[in-house]
């Protein structure tokens, strides 16, 4: 077991034990339905130590659920311009943002399934919000195709073959609606790319972005800690991040 994981495990159970102390509630004799029961991680019979051997765990999530390879490369390139690698740490590409967006498009978010999509559709005022009939996955299909067309028209090259500056230039034209699209809004597509980038950089690694919690580490964000009773009234404190995976106790 790698050293830092061990450390995390220890931190975890410490925090949990500390909660039991600081909450002022002793185990047993508790009125609130199962509040404490829910905090004790469900431990598998075989502890992690036993299963762990020299075998390296593969990350089988690095595959695509929606994008074509061409779309995937474009999203990787575009999001890297939105959130580039720099001295602070990795950019969107290394964080897995394009995988994150791909995986999100294959589910509820991509289908707008928890949003009101009933007709009739009318063009509204800006303050009335999105009124299109097209769902996110189609917006990505169209947006990426148009991004490609625009690059080909303007620079005679595929988007991914453009220089950084040229890519920025193309993305700026989308962001500022200088590209005339008929079915979708160019800036609307760009906004979706941008918010998808931040989500992919900073959501729990469970969703395939924020690889190795590098997004969180860059900004000293501690991830999903159980409790902050120890630091809430202290000066700025750097705490190594934990992710949801750690809560399950493996």
């Amino acid at each position: 077991m790698p050293e830092n994981t061990k450390q995390q495990d220890k931190n975890e159970s410490l925090t949990r034990r500390r909660f039991l102390k600081s909450s002022g509630i002793a185990l047993g004799g508790l009125a609130v339905g199962g509040a404490l029961g829910s905090l004790i991680p469900f431990k598998e019979k075989t502890s992690v130590e036993n299963v762990k051997s020299d075998k390296k765990t593969e990350n089988y999530n690095l595959a695509l659920m929606y994008f074509t390879q061409e779309q995937f490369r474009m999203v990787e390139a575009a999001t890297e311009r939105i959130f580039p690698a720099d001295d602070n740490g990795p950019g969107a590409k290394e964080l897995g943002v394009a995988y994150f967006i791909d995986h999100q498009l294959s589910g509820d978010w991509g289908f707008n399934s928890r949003e009101y999509m009933q007709p009739p559709f009318f063009k509204g005022e800006k303050v009335q919000g999105y009124q299109g009939r097209i769902r996110r996955r189609e917006i990505f299909d169209i947006g990426l195709r148009e991004l490609q067309n625009y690059s080909l028209t303007k620079y005679k090259k595929n988007f991914i073959d453009l220089s950084d500056e040229e890519q920025d230039d193309v993305l700026t034209d989308f962001a500022e609606d200088k590209v005339n699209l008929t079915t979708i809004s160019a800036s609307g597509f760009f906004t979706m790319l941008r918010s998808g980038t931040l989500e992919g950089a900073y959501s729990d690694p469970l969703y395939s972005g924020n690889r190795n919690m590098e997004g969180w580490k860059m900004r000293n964000y501690p991830g999903s800690q159980m409790a902050y009773t120890d630091v809430i009234d202290k000066k700025f404190t750097v705490i190594p991040p934990v992710s949801l995976k750690d809560h399950l106790g493996h």
Binding site: F19, S22, S23, I25, L30, A35, Q225, A227, T229
Partner: peptide, 22 residues
């Protein structure tokens, strides 16, 4: 007669449910 635990300042409060019942 309902007893509840103290808040842990966990920072996942609004838009989230409280796992402590705090």
């Amino acid at each position: 007669g309902v007893s509840r635990a103290a808040c842990q300042y966990c920072a996942y409060c609004e838009r989230f449910g409280c796992e402590y019942g705090a």
